[in-house]
Amino acid sequence: MLLTSVIIVLREVLEAALLVSILMSLCFKLGIERSWFKWGVLGGVVGSIGLGSQLGFISSLFGGIGQEVVDAGLQIFIYICLLYICVEFINHYYQRHAVSGTLRAVLVIIILCAMSREGSEIYIYLSAFQSLPHASVSLYSGSIIGLGIGLSCCALFYYCLLSFSLLRTLILGCMLLTVVASGMLLQAGKMLIQADLLPDGQLWDSSAVLSEESLSGQLLYALAGYEATPAPAQLVLYLFGVVCMAAVVLTRYWHWQRRKVSAKVAGYEE
């Protein structure tokens, strides 16, 4: 029971908290105020309970594949939001202006969606098993250990990201967000395959090298959506995610670089 609780809580917490720590450190470095954070967390808690308590209904949608469709939809939505956030962060780096309400709202929505998705499973698990008389001690200590490990990892990760210079944090942050966002697409792919909306298959099996159950496997899963036995459709989605996001981010970056150079040239000509 203890180990089960640890694994369930840790898996879900790691994913959402990693995303939060990347976003928080970028906002800190870019001087974007972080009051959005508490609203996102609050919404995430409410969303978790809402999604968890409505899961029975959601599952029955679309002829029994509602859970997969909603999950995949949320993941794809988060991917798009992260794409927007990355672009905004780069804009903000080159041109410090007041943070728009849209950016703040999108940040809140990302946290809300990511937390609801992960938190609903914890909610279902805890609410179902906390009533068992012999289980509560191991259930709660397991949950605290899982929560503790997840949050510690992310706090240390957050301070680690803060220790770099602004430009490095931005580059690293955008790269991490690209990987995380593409991992979300990969998982969305998994859900769509499970719902039979995409073809299944197996490209390779790397579970002997790094199993998904191990702690490092869980970490890599949370960070980059690691799968030991991915389907071709998942890989295609993942690569699409990486290429698309990298292309948008780099285009934005080059756009600002060019403007900077031309501004300099104009400065010399004067």
Binding site: L3, I145, I149, L151, S152, C153, A155, L156
Partner: peptide, 21 residues
Amino acid sequence: LVSVLSALMLVNFIAALHGYR
């Protein structure tokens, strides 16, 4: 506080889990 406590918690919990297993 946060970083020291995080490091402590991480190490302790992983050790506890290892012991448990």
